[in-house]
Nucleic acid binder design. Structure first.
Length: 725
RNA sequence: GGACUUGUAGCUCAGUGGUAGAGCGCUUCAUUGACAUUGAAGAGGUCAGAGGUUCGAUACCUCUCAGGUCCACCA
């Protein structure tokens, strides 16, 4: 054996051995109790970062269960990540001086498809290089035809149950990226903007958005406001920038008499409060900002101006006309921005498909309350519940081409919508017209990924081309679904709890009647050595794959687990990874010691595997040996308990400490001078037990050494987990 | 405005109702056969502050101070 462990000669070879032997498949333990984890699907187009490397938590759980004899499934997949991917792709286009408007829908979709396709292999390679024992034959992509069919089926079912409706509401719209969002994608930031006090007939009123004044359809005051009570119900008339205006004065308790002058202009098309007020008072809508972010023809000479310019020009014109009384320059408030491009979002009126969340959320809450889902750490149970209690209806329409197109058709003649499970309807069920046009929108990515646990398992049914609609028999045929649903654990970062975890619970219960997973384990975010968030702009990003190449995958894995408790952010440094690399070398050199002794002794010593603790105890003659056996026995118990309780950091720390400072520093030193046939067997057997315990954490090096020692072709990955009697 | 969360050795963090741990760093010494990607010894912390519960608190409760994150329709 080499003096130093060389992971580069080992990792690829070992991974291939595992894969070729079918060890990643649940079928290696055909009679075991099922244990399943669905991999949170990474974006198909993006390279892996350290967040993805945290999947090591899942690999540890899965390897542990496999050694425990469970029929263990870890199912890989990738996400088309609608908006994220289209956003990245458009930036690529921009670099070439092009934009999405240069292509038609089909062409653009194909181009993004090719773009994603060209990146997908890379991601798979990276996951493998970290040693993840995923069953690649069961790999799924959110745009696989089988998955799409299931997503359609869910949509139709929700629609039939009246849990999906189409409505004209104000939605948050990014005029740059050209799509609407759900509430979750909106990032609120605090900002300083001028507050303009404008003259409106007899009133003065304050607003940050003078450019929307052309969309006003009323003026509102508080119903009890003595100053203005007499105006309520009356109409005011005054000269504005584009002619004479007549506005109704309404009384509405949403108006805060303390703010500004206590008078508000009401613009139902461009403000959420005003929209609600408009509904209460039956006010007309006047859309003065278009989806391109420019003022519409309702604004007269201001038509075509972008919002920011319009604000400047309108306020200047108001000033010229003497309609601007003052400007408060120190006004701060929060504005809604696009979480992706950072631009201010426009509330715009648009018809969209919405999920009626309340019934789904109530069912999810109920399941959580009943303890059907366990959260680790526990505090996230409250977080999830709070989200479920406060969800607004979920806008699932996106004005993107990259995604699953919504299976809804509008009749040109009677305007009624027809929703199907994906088939093109032949005629309008309402008026029999054949003129039907499909909605151009696609689903919010989270609508499909929210169905991931059951969709991935159902789609494993071996009927290759089931027809639409999917029958319940087809679904029943999926052995994987029967066997592995609900899955055992969902492991992901706490940052996507509301986006993903909560929605999986809602949709999972709705579609299958069962929770999608029994335990949710939420890991923290990986930060740099100073605890700062890793980001490209900070330049502090460490690439897990580079680190694995430099220090071994095992070292990277161990560094991610060691000292990192569930739900808390973890700060990672190259020093830490190097420290773990040193540990791999320590493990290696214990093996080397054992190996050298065997070779140099005459007669040659013998390496034994599969002796029980009890058999070992019978061999032991010295006190030290006896104590060591006892200590290992305790370590087995401790480690097992820690992993079962998801305390992976404690398990890892215990193993590290024991292997290095007990086994190597003390025991090996002690035994060095007195090795005989029996004590040698004790040393190597204990060592092999330690290798088993370490295997889930550091699979490559332990497998490599096990291969050298075990003599036959058995693999550590499917060896039995040591049991303390 | 609300919710959650953190404050433990120089740095990054574990941990526990019984007078504190790890990794990295630091000091001194050792070392030609398992390993310098090493070993031995060591320095270093009134576990943010105040009060309470307790025989006993760093750990449980309350408050204060200081960070962080997320949510929130105030024009």
């Amino acid at each position: 054996m080499n003096k130093i462990y060389n992971h580069k000669e080992v990792e690829e070879k070992i991974y291939k051995k595992w894969e070729d032997s079918g060890s990643f498949k649940p079928e290696v333990n055909p009679n075991g109790q099922p244990y399943s984890i669905i991999l949170p699907p990474p974006n198909a187009n993006a390279p892996l970062h350290f967040g993805h490397a945290m999947y090591v938590v899942e690999d540890i759980l899965v390897r542990f269960r496999r050694m425990m004899g469970h029929a263990t499934l870890w199912l890989p997949g990738t996400d088309h990540a609608g908006f994220e991917t289209q956003f990245v792709f458009e930036r690529e286009l921009q670099r070439e001086g092009k934009s999405r408007f240069d292509y038609d829908r089909e062409k653009l979709y194909q181009m993004i498809w090719d773009f994603v396709e060209s990146n997908r292999g890379e991601m798979e390679k990276q996951l493998k290089s970290l040693g993840f024992s995923l069953d690649w034959d069961r790999m799924r992509f959110t745009l696989d035809p089988e998955i799409i069919k299931i997503v359609y089926k869910t949509f139709k079912k929700l629609y039939d149950d009246e849990l999906i409706y189409r409505d004209l509401k104000l939605i948050n719209f990014c005029t740059h990226d050209g799509t609407s969002f759900s509430d979750l994608e909106v990032k609120h930031i605090e900002q300083k903007d001028p507050l303009y006090y404008m003259r409106y007939g007899p009133f003065s009123l304050a607003t940050v958005r003078p450019e929307t004044k052309f969309g006003d359809t009323a003026v509102a005051v508080h119903p009890d406001d003595k100053r203005y009570k007499k105006y309520i119900g009356k109409e005011i008339e005054f000269e504005s920038l584009i002619g004479r205006v007549k506005l109704k004065v309404i009384g509405d308790s949403a108006v805060d008499p303390e703010f500004g002058t206590g008078v508000v202009k009401v613009t139902p098309s461009h403000d959420f409060n005003d929209f609600e007020m408009g509904k209460r008072h039956n006010l007309p809508m006047r859309q003065v900002i278009g989806f391109d972010g420019r003022l519409t023809s309702l604004t007269g000479k201001y038509k075509g101006l972008k919002v920011a310019e319009a604000r400047r020009i309108v306020s200047e014109d108001l000033k010229k006309e003497g309609l601007l009384e003052k400007i408060d320059e120190r006004y701060t408030h929060t504005v809604a921005t696009c979480y992706k491009c950072g631009r201010v979002l426009e509330p715009l009126p648009l018809e969209q498909w919405f999920v009626k969340v309340k019934p789904l959320a109530d069912a999810a809450l109920n399941a959580i309350k009943k303890g059907e889902i366990k959260f680790i750490p526990k505090r996230f149970e409250k977080t999830a519940s709070t989200w479920l209690e406060n969800f607004h209806d979920w806008n699932i329409s996106r004005q993107l081409v990259w995604g699953i197109r919504i299976p809804a058709w509008k009749c040109k003649d009677c305007s009624k919508w027809t929703v199907t499970e994906g088939m093109v309807p032949e005629q309008c069920p309402n008026c029999k017209s054949k003129e039907l046009v499909q909605d151009t929108d696609t689903f919010d990515t989270w609508f499909s990924s929210g169905q991931w646990p059951y969709a991935t398992l159902l789609s494993q049914s071996r009927i290759s081309n089931f027809q639409l609609p999917i029958s319940n028999e087809d679904i029943n045929i999926s052995q994987d679904f029967k066997k592995f649903y609900p899955t055992s654990v969902m492991e992901t970062g706490y940052d996507i709890l509301p986006w993903w975890v909560v929605r999986m619970i809602m949709l999972g219960i709705y579609e299958t009647g069962k929770v999608p997973f029994k335990t949710v384990y939420l890991h923290g975010l990986v930060r740099d050595q100073k605890g700062k968030k890793m980001s490209k702009s900070r330049g502090n990003v460490i690439n897990p794959i580079d680190m694995a190449e430099k220090y071994s995958a095992d070292a990277v894995r161990m560094a991610l687990i060691f000292g990192a408790s569930a739900g808390n952010d973890l700060s990672l440094s190259e020093d830490k990874i190097r420290g773990m690399r040193n540990f791999t070398n320590k493990i290696w050199n214990i093996a080397r010691f054992i190996d050298l002794k065997r070779e140099t002794r005459n007669p040659k010593l013998e390496i034994r595997n599969n002796l029980t603790i009890e058999q070992l105890s019978n061999l032991a003659t010295t006190q030290t040996d006896k104590e060591m056996i006892k200590l290992v026995e305790e370590l087995v118990k401790r480690t097992t308990k820690h992993i079962e309780k998801f305390e992976l950091n404690l398990a890892a720390e215990g193993l590290y400490e024991f292997m290095w400072h007990e086994f190597a520093d003390k025991y090996i030193e002690n035994v060095k001078g007195r090795l005989d046939k029996d004590s040698y067997i004790i040393v190597n057997t204990l060592y092999l037990i330690l290798l088993r315990l370490l295997h889930p954490f550091m699979p490559f090096i332990t497998e490599e050494i096990f291969g050298k020692f075990s003599g036959n072709n058995s693999l550590l990955i499917t060896e039995k987990w040591p049991k303390a009697e």
